[in-house]
């Protein structure tokens, strides 16, 4: 009989869930975290189980991670997102030794070994510089859909220079560039470069070893991926669903430890 494992990643912006069985990814789901992490976790589990026709009792173990892990109302083993992210990437790209994880409110660079164990890490400081939230703020100013940011920015011939990676100052700076008549794609490309600068400063602090992977919601933004690749001079391995990697790692850890129930 197949045993099923649940990985739940309650992020500050979105919540991600994964169900695995026999070492395979069977279902995943993403929804906004909203202001009630408990409700988000419940809804996530319900949606996941619904997708593959399972009930709560079919889940052998659950690992919860992310900022809201402490709010997950059903039995689980809490594990830090740093460790889960490393295991998740290791499951997809076993050769990865460095991960750039671009989340909504912060970014982190994680070093890992061939077994997916964390050997070092560095997290951006508490402001949202170098994180996905910065892109959201800019997209809002420019009235661009988030999904269009990447493709649009790649059309830029003349990226504007952004002096800040700060989400608050960045907004007013974007407004100024708009007022000066800069093209939307040039502003977006400039923002990507500013983010890549911030990320490369983090990479410098913990050191880089290839292969290098990029995970988190930032991995959905092709413009950001290209900017980071240009800045670091290496190709990024990006999983097909980069935002669920940490939840996937959580499910893998649940399967390994079977300690959740």
């Amino acid at each position: 009989m197949t045993a099923y494992y649940l990985g739940i990643d309650i992020g500050s912006r979105t919540s991600k869930g994964v169900v695995t069985g026999d070492g395979r990814l069977l279902a995943c789901h993403v929804l906004p975290s909203g202001v009630n992490y408990r409700a988000a976790a419940e809804k996530l589990r319900e949606a996941l189980l619904g997708k593959i026709g399972l009930s709560v009792s079919d889940i052998a173990a659950t690992v919860a991670t992310g900022q809201g892990a402490g709010n997950v109302p059903f039995p689980n083993e809490p594990v830090t997102d740093i460790r889960c992210c490393a295991r998740g990437i290791n499951g997809v790209f076993p050769a990865a030794r460095t991960i750039i994880d671009v989340q909504a409110q912060s970014s982190q660079v994680i070093r890992l070994n061939g077994s997916g164990l964390v050997t070092g890490f560095v997290v951006s400081e508490k402001c949202a510089a170098g994180s996905g939230r910065f892109m959201e703020v800019i997209a809002n100013v420019l009235q661009v859909e988030l999904k269009d940011i990447g493709p649009l920015s790649l059309k830029s011939k003349n990226p504007v220079a952004f002096s800040t990676g700060c989400a608050v100052f960045g907004e007013s700076e974007a407004v100024s560039r708009v007022a000066e008549g800069s093209a939307v794609e040039d502003i977006l490309a400039g923002v990507h470069q500013a983010l890549a600068d911030k990320i490369s400063a983090l990479v410098d602090r913990v050191g880089m070893e290839t292969d290098c992977a990029l995970s988190g919601g930032g991995g959905l933004d092709t413009g950001l991926i290209r900017a980071v690749e240009a800045k670091l001079g290496v190709r990024m391995l990006v999983p097909p669903q980069p935002q669920i990697i940490t939840a996937l790692g959580a499910a893998i850890m649940a399967e390994e430890t079977r300690g959740g129930h």
Binding site: V118, F121, K126
Partner: peptide, 23 residues
């Protein structure tokens, strides 16, 4: 760990300390 002499800021270091202890 860098912090700015406030309890709120310290709470944000929790994950980092946890991850370090796991390592």
């Amino acid at each position: 760990l860098e912090h700015d002499y406030s309890k709120v800021a310290l709470a944000q270091l929790r994950t980092r300390v946890q991850a370090f202890l796991e390592i």
